[in-house]
Computed example of a mutant assay.
Amino acid sequence: MAAIGTILQRSSFNDLSDFDIKGNWEVNSDALLTPGANSVLQYKYASALDQFQIKVKTDSPSLVMQMFGIKSANNIRTAFSVSNGRAKWEFTYNNTNGTSDTSIVIDNGDILEYIFTKTQWTVSFEVKNISKNTSSFVLVPAASAAITAHKVRFYSASQAKILFFEKWSDQEFQPLNLLVGDSITYGSSATIPANRWGTKAGFQIEGSAGDTSSEGLELLYEITNIIKPKRVVYAFGTNDLNIEVWKNNLMEFKAKIEQKNIVFIPIAPYANNNRSMQPYFDYINLNFNEYFDLFGVTKQAGNTNLKAEFNVDGTHFNNAGHQACADFVLNSPYYSFIPVDHQTSSALRLLVLNKWFN
């Protein structure tokens, strides 16, 4: 299995095409310098990778790294910074925060390295004082913070310089299947990541709590240019209250995925107790010959509510629900497929034409 590896690395910031800038940032001796006033530097592409790491080097402990949730209505924003020599996290959504148990000494001119790491549900933040070879580390409790589909950004209240930026991932490159969706894809209410139905089905995960098909469109760059799966399993719908928007987004997503020679297959969205997902199933059933009917798997007999034996909160389901979805998918005739190979397809067409004309 090959890993994605380095996504972006910058030790010189003369090329800022991968960043959006708000406020005062300027290139100074290959580094990026801001006078402060909370000017924002943002990596422009949204991400919902299951596993990734970001490193940034700076000369200022006032620099803040933020995972800025692209669905601003949810306020899913987690900030990482240094407070009195301690690595610190702050989760805006529920106003929680935490710091490392140990502190480090930081003097003027010291070079710091911020290291953010996400491995499925585990998130950590480390601040290294490279000048003094010391570090401060804090683990972010899974129940206290969520890293949803986001854009990473940096800002500072006072003068700060960014000397280095790197984002990389050891998630699988060109996986056979990539499951893209919301909190159920992410595994909410499963007890451990291994119990997620997508993981049990052998899929790589691009899941994000609270997101809709609109946020899914923002992940297209990462999916088609960074992960490059052979097939995408599309699992948005639960949070899409406007079915017409969902229909349009689904078809736009499908078209753009298929332009990259990636196979597309949707699920029929899961049942829940808040509203009937029957119209969503009907649309999938009418427009797709191949799909995974997880609506049928999760709904009660005789109505459209979530099965009582799976129900956690009316929307999410427990380990048994995840297992039922995985079992259905694994036994589906659509589980196995033939990946689209552009070169092979071209060669096959050429062979057919040669036989036709000869």
Rank of each mutant, 00 (worst) to 15 (best):
F164N: 10
E90Y: 15
I111T: 15
W246L: 11
L219E: 05
D59Y: 02
T117G: 00
I7H: 09
S29Q: 14
I205H: 05
F281C: 00
E309H: 04
W168Q: 13
D107L: 06
L16Q: 07
I265K: 10
E309M: 07
A48N: 08
F328G: 02
S100V: 03
Y270G: 06
Y270F: 11
A46H: 01
T315R: 08
N94L: 10
T298E: 03
S346I: 14
D59N: 15
K71N: 14
G202S: 07
A255T: 12
T102H: 02
N97D: 07
E252W: 01
E90N: 08
A320Y: 04
K355S: 14
L112E: 05
M65L: 15
T238D: 03
Q259T: 06
K88Q: 14
G85I: 07
K307T: 03
V340L: 15
N289P: 00
Q343V: 13
S83E: 12
A320I: 02
Y45Q: 11
I147Y: 11
S60R: 09
Y280R: 01
F91G: 10
W121V: 06
T58C: 08
Q278C: 00
F91V: 02
G198V: 08
F80L: 08
S81T: 13
N75Y: 10
Y234E: 09
N319R: 07
T199L: 06
Q343R: 10
K247F: 01
A2D: 14
G210R: 03
G109T: 07
L353I: 13
E290F: 00
W121L: 05
D15E: 12
Q300K: 14
V27M: 02
A194K: 14
E26Y: 05
K132C: 02
F80A: 05
D327H: 08
A209M: 10
N249I: 05
K22D: 13
A235S: 15
S189I: 00
A145P: 03
E206A: 14
K228L: 04
F165Y: 15
F164M: 05
E26N: 12
Y93F: 09
P266F: 08
A268G: 03
M277P: 00
S11A: 13
A308G: 12
S124M: 01
W121N: 13
I4R: 10
A268H: 06
N84C: 00
K88R: 15
T344I: 14
I267H: 09
T148F: 03
Q204R: 14
I265A: 02
N248A: 15
Y114P: 10
K71I: 00
I7Y: 06
A143Y: 05
N318A: 03
I104C: 01
E206R: 04
A255V: 03
A255R: 15
P175F: 01
F80N: 02
T148R: 09
F337R: 10
E252Y: 12
G216S: 04
H316G: 06
G85Q: 04
M251D: 08
G98Y: 05
